[in-house]
């Protein structure tokens, strides 16, 4: 998994690519979420357009990031999850708690509200 971070319109954007599965890379993703919380970044946009696979550990890190941000009054939105990842969100019902977008500008505008 590769992680790229940038600030766009004042919003932290985290772009993931590859496989979000068990392994040391997941610790890096946890750290990215924690750093965002520590730096009071508030809201986070998570771009999953280049994520091919995710397992339960990867999902766990996303859920944990989502709840940690929410606890601090922030929000996490998901951008362009692939069909496979979207199916994963549906079967686990996480689709009911994740905010999902297919347009980056729309997602950023929503997170700035």
């Amino acid at each position: 998994m590769k992680i790229k971070e940038e600030i766009k319109d004042g919003i932290k954007v985290i772009r993931l690519s590859g496989k979000v599965i068990s392994g040391p890379d997941l610790m890096d993703l946890k750290t990215v979420f924690q750093t965002s919380i520590n730096n009071n970044m508030g809201n986070v946009l998570l771009d999953l357009s280049r994520v091919a696979w995710m397992d339960s550990s990867g999902l766990g890190v996303l859920v944990s990031g989502h709840t940690s941000l929410a606890r601090e009054g922030g929000r996490m939105a998901i951008l362009n999850a692939t069909k496979k990842i979207n199916e994963l969100f549906i079967i686990t019902k996480l689709i009911t708690i994740f905010e999902t977008f297919t347009d980056e500008n729309e997602a950023l505008a929503s997170l700035k509200e």
Binding site: S56, T67, I91, K93
Partner: peptide, 21 residues
């Protein structure tokens, strides 16, 4: 079936659901 309520936002417990699918 996925969990409900607190289980739904747990960071664990989805392995068998994913494997079955």
């Amino acid at each position: 079936e996925p969990g409900e309520g607190e289980a739904l936002i747990s960071s664990r417990g989805r392995g068998v659901l994913i494997a079955r699918n």
